[in-house]
Design a protein around this nucleic acid. Structure first.
Lengths: 186, 186
DNA sequence: GTCTATACAGTGATAGAC
DNA sequence: GTCTATCACTGTATAGAC
């Protein structure tokens, strides 16, 4: 039985801990508990400690979105890419049961530590969605407006779903946005 | 010169610390630094420690919203109440430069500690806004949809504004919602 | 690579002088 | 009421055995 001994294998586990407890609330003992790896092993993989672990997690999340969401929005057929975005985010955020790690990091002083990564995650999401909408026929000003509102709305839906312990909020929000983007103007 | 020696005077200061650092990131030393009060005084006002301080802060925030936003939405002239809500939240959140403490608490395991307070803050906001919209002439299903989308959108706008360090996101989001609510259906 | 042992600063909290 | 001193504990991080 092969256990985890590659850095890439533990990053998703560490990501879950950061997602659940935030940066400050994540302790090495919790990471040890989740991964089964002692501090020695963790510092072997991440010499920079907790900070480097968080950076690896952010890079991992960013890589997933770049590959599954942003790149198709920029380069693929716009209607397919948008449809894949709805499926992708609903799946990724477990229909509202999972929280956005990047959004959570943004809210407290953790943002200052990872400001560039956090800003890039959102600006690239908005920019790639705007591109797809324009290629789908939306005028530039409406495309940017809709893109911003969708990305912002997904974050808000995740906050509200978790705050009220009502996951259905997330699905309803996605449905509203999907419907709105389907009605081309004119 | 009268300094702070009432519990009510220090709550807003403590609120700022929780808003900036989150629950886990807020330490008693940071509260001491902000308020100028030593641990002795803090535990005199809040025998329950950090937990009781956070509860007092949540109650303070809740009281402000109940008084300035929810009650007018439920009882006042709907158009005036909605207009006052836009002014109120723009002012309260400093046009996007301030974060929502309740939303931030909702994202990590802090939610479990204050679950009832956090859920109530959002469900009452949505319910009171829905009431106002219905009294303004919106059909029930659209009123609840819009209310949920506005409350959720405000949270998302705060996340996005802070994440991208672009406060203007917040103002644009408020303007979009305001415009949408002005166009009564039919 | 993975572990145990350990260093040391910082945490929330309490006691008691004034 | 406010302070200082102190508590037990947990935090991140390091060193070194195996």
């Amino acid at each position: 039985m092969r256990t985890l001994y590659e850095r890439a294998d533990v990053v998703p586990l560490i990501a879950e801990v950061f997602r659940e407890f935030g940066f400050e609330g994540t302790s090495l003992s919790r990471i040890t508990e989740k991964t089964g790896l002692g501090k020695g092993s963790l510092y072997h993989f991440f010499p920079g400690g907790k900070d480097e672990m968080a950076r690896a997690v952010l890079a991992h999340v960013d890589g997933w979105f770049e590959r599954e969401i942003y790149a198709p929005l920029r380069d693929g057929p716009p209607d397919d890419a948008v449809a894949q975005m709805w499926r992708g985010v609903d799946d990724y955020f477990r229909s509202g049961r999972r929280v956005c790690l990047v959004g959570a990091f943004a809210l407290d002083e953790t943002r200052d530590r990872f400001a560039a990564d956090i800003a890039s995650y959102f600006t690239r999401w908005i920019a790639s969605l705007r591109d797809a909408l324009m290629r789908a026929g939306w005028p530039a000003d409406q495309a940017i407006d809709h893109a911003e509102e969708v990305v912002l709305g997904i974050q808000g839906a995740l906050v509200l779903a978790r705050a009220t312990a009502d996951e259905a909020v997330f699905g309803r929000a996605l449905a509203r946005f999907r419907q709105r983007l389907q009605q081309l103007p004119g």
